[in-house]
C-alpha cells in the first residue's frame, strides 16, 4: 500500500543553524503516527514544512496531493467570527449537516459564540472537529493538548479517537508528552535534538489500526506499555544530556 505521507531527506536551516538534518519518514494511510521530542527540536517546523506553511529548503515531501488539515497548539479561529461561521468557512459542510454533527458531540450551545469566550478544552474540540469534518486525508496536530489539564486531556484524546475512527485520516501528531504519544499512536518516532534527525521509531502492537481501540480509551496506556514508555523515556533523557 502506498504511504499517505513520505518525507525524504528533509533538511532545514535558520541562518546557519541546522534545525533538521536529513529527516526521512513514511506514514501508512489511516494510522496515527506521533513525532516525539523535547522542546525546540523542530517538530512543529516539520509539520509546517509538510503543510507548506514554511517553504521546504532541502529534501522531498510527498503528500500525494491530498487535502491537509492542521490542528494548532491553541485556539486558532478567526476571532472576529462566530464558531459556526468559522466551521462553515473551513469545512464544506452545509449548516444543517454541521448542526447535526455538533449536536452529536453536545457542542451546539457554543455555535453562536465568539472563540474568545470558549474554554481551552471546548475550543480545541472545535479545532479538532474542523480538522476532521472537512474530510482531509492528512491531519497534522501540533501539540494540541499541551495547554490543557489532565482531565481535559483524556477527554480530548477520546474525542480525537472517536473522530479518527469515523473519518479515518492519517494523523501526524507532534508532542513532547510520552503518555499522550502512547495513548494515541500506532507508531512513535523520536526526533533527536542532538542528531536533528529521527533516531528511533517504535511500533506499538495491537493499536487503533487493528481495531483495538477499546482498551486504549478505557485504561491508561502507561501501565500497558511500560516497556515502550521506558524506551522512550530513556531516549528523551539521553537527548537532554
Amino acid at each position: 500500500m502506498k504511504n499517505a505521507l513520505t518525507l525524504s531527506n528533509v533538511s532545514h536551516k535558520f541562518s546557519d543553524t541546522v534545525v533538521l538534518n536529513d529527516v526521512s519518514l513514511s506514514i501508512a494511510p489511516g494510522t496515527i503516527h506521533t513525532l516525539i521530542g523535547t522542546t525546540g527540536v523542530g517538530k512543529s517546523l516539520l509539520l509546517r514544512l509538510i503543510s507548506n506553511l514554511t517553504v521546504l529548503q532541502n529534501g522531498h515531501i510527498d503528500t500525494n496531493n491530498e487535502k491537509i488539515s492542521y490542528v494548532f497548539q491553541n485556539n486558532s479561529f478567526f476571532s472576529w467570527l462566530t464558531i459556526e461561521k468559522n466551521l462553515e468557512l473551513s469545512s464544506n459542510l452545509k449548516i444543517k449537516e454541521m448542526e447535526i454533527l455538533v449536536k452529536r458531540f453536545k457542542l451546539e450551545e457554543y455555535l453562536k459564540m465568539y472563540p474568545k469566550y470558549l474554554s481551552g478544552g471546548t475550543g480545541q474540540k472545535f479545532n479538532l472537529l474542523r480538522a476532521f469534518v472537512n474530510r482531509s486525508n492528512i491531519v497534522l496536530m501540533d501539540e494540541p493538548f499541551s495547554h490543557l489539564d489532565v482531565i481535559q486531556r483524556e477527554d480530548l484524546y477520546n474525542f480525537t479517537l472517536e473522530l479518527w475512527k469515523e473519518y479515518r485520516p492519517t494523523i501526524l501528531l507532534v508532542t513532547h508528552d510520552i503518555d499522550e504519544a502512547l495513548y494515541l499512536s500506532d507508531k512513535i518516532s523520536f526526533l533527536s535534538r542532538k542528531e536533528k534527525n529521527i533516531k528511533y521509531t517504535l511500533e506499538i502492537e495491537n493499536r487503533h489500526s487493528n481495531g483495538n481501540t477499546k482498551s486504549l480509551v478505557t485504561e491508561r496506556a502507561k501501565d500497558h506499555y511500560l516497556r515502550d514508555f521506558k524506551i522512550l523515556y530513556n531516549y528523551l533523557s539521553e537527548d537532554l544530556v
Partner: peptide, 22 residues
C-alpha cells in the same frame, strides 16, 4: 490567522470579506 487561510483554502469572496475586511 493567515496560516488558517492557507490551510483551509478560503474562496476569494470569503478571503476578502470574512478574512481581510472583518
Amino acid at each position: 490567522s493567515y496560516d488558517l487561510v492557507r490551510i483551509y483554502k478560503l474562496t476569494r469572496f470569503d478571503y476578502i470579506w470574512n478574512f481581510i475586511l472583518k
